[in-house]
Design a protein around this nucleic acid. Structure first.
Lengths: 227, 227
DNA sequence: CTATCTTATGGTCATATTGACCAAAAGTAG
DNA sequence: CTACTTTTGGTCAATATGACCATAAGATAG
């Protein structure tokens, strides 16, 4: 087999979701140069010889957007023959959930702009990034019901209704308020902060925080998160 | 950035599970040449320029083992810097479940032998294939509970106890026979074949088949498989 | 033919979970 | 005070689950 018939390069692309104003948001960058100049796409870049996949993903995300110290998870590889117009490139997609208010966006490297877009108002995307985003959305829908990752999208403290709105937005259907809080509270994963909402024109709700330690303890005992 | 610092090659590795004699089995090949000569590993090979990932996986599996026409699904990419001793290679792992009795194993290409091993008696594996297999086992455990893929491991017709044994082996814990059959039967995914077991030294059980059409119809209506 | 053994098949029952509601309490704004 | 909004918790019937128990259907041994 001649060497020049093999696949030669691999990139990383990151699908980063956020949540505010009750809507799911997607982080995009505008390419500063190259073939996609001036167009929006997922933050991505080449993998170097001496870094493993996770390292590459963290580096690229940080370089392009300024976002650091989050939990990135591999989604899957995309390798359609013509997905990249210049040459054959396979990309490995990564996935993360963040609370946008905790991060300042700093475009850098090959990105001239970085911006959050409501997922359902995203611009047209480069290459096969549309397909990757759709894939990530499916992944998110499944995952958010089986693991307590939704909390990553919210601030440290939130009301039960905030949480419900998040689930309604991700799952794309309404939930019964009473039943939702009964279920969440019975799990025992939330710690009352003692504080209450402020500046609301009605009775203020209690603020809760996700109790990671408790979650780990429950998982040890066989607990299975499910909504 | 100089071109020669980028990742240069990508392979596919297939984790194929089977089931017989109440045990989960793993398909391995013995390398005929190269750096891993004489050692066991997952069926794998290089991805070519003009084939997409799924195509590459089917080609490689067929070339090495003779297995064709099965449902392969991508697991994830593995890209540790030193996972391959000669050069930097990223591999994309694929995953499938088959009924071993339906396939004749034909070693070919870079494989001198192909063989089923009980998963818990597998030999030492090449490179990071041990890690990939462990990953696939976790994936299988999750997936088998949420999608009716277990049937792929069984013959066309099987008894409810066969199915129970399969779940017990994959999930690594005992199930209550009565409750198991109540649950499975209530789902309505099984079609009675009308036939019964033969050559058993006790009352013969009914043989059932998975009803794919019914499954699709139920999914349309919002049905969610779960065990 | 009868007793015995093994597995199939189906039930019981107390407990937990779910979905669809209802109702009171707390606080804001006029 | 009154009207209004949202929080918070409750009811109740229907369903699902886990731990058992009981009987039926063959097969085999004597």
């Amino acid at each position: 087999m001649s060497k020049n018939k093999l696949v030669k390069s691999v990139t990383i692309d990151c699908v980063i979701f956020g949540f505010y104003e009750r809507r799911l948001q997607l982080l995009l960058v505008k390419h500063a140069d190259g073939i996609g100049q001036g167009r929006w796409g997922l933050p991505g870049g080449w993998i170097l010889q001496d870094e493993d996949l996770d390292q590459a993903a963290y580096r690229i995300l940080s370089d392009l957007t300024g976002i650091e110290n989050i939990y990135l998870e591999q989604l899957r590889a995309f390798g359609g023959v013509d997905r990249f117009p210049v040459s054959r490139v396979i990309t490995i997609a990564y996935f993360a959930l963040v609370n946008p208010s905790e991060y300042q966006l700093i475009p850098g490297f090959t990105a001239s702009e970085v911006e959050w877009f409501p997922v359902d108002e995203r611009p047209e995307l480069l290459y096969d990034h549309q397909e990757i985003v759709l894939n990530a959305l499916d992944f998110l829908k499944d995952k958010v019901r089986r693991e307590p990752i939704g909390f990553n999208l919210l601030p440290e403290e939130f009301t039960l209704l905030d949480l419900q709105h998040l689930y309604e937005e991700v799952l794309q259907h309404e939930l019964d308020k009473s039943n939702f809080r009964r279920k969440i509270k019975k799990m025992g994963l939330l710690r009352k902060s003692g504080k209450k909402q402020t500046d609301v024109p009605h009775r203020a709700a209690n603020l809760y925080a996700f109790d990671e330690t408790m979650y780990r303890r429950l998982v040890e005992k066989g607990f299975n998160f499910e909504i």
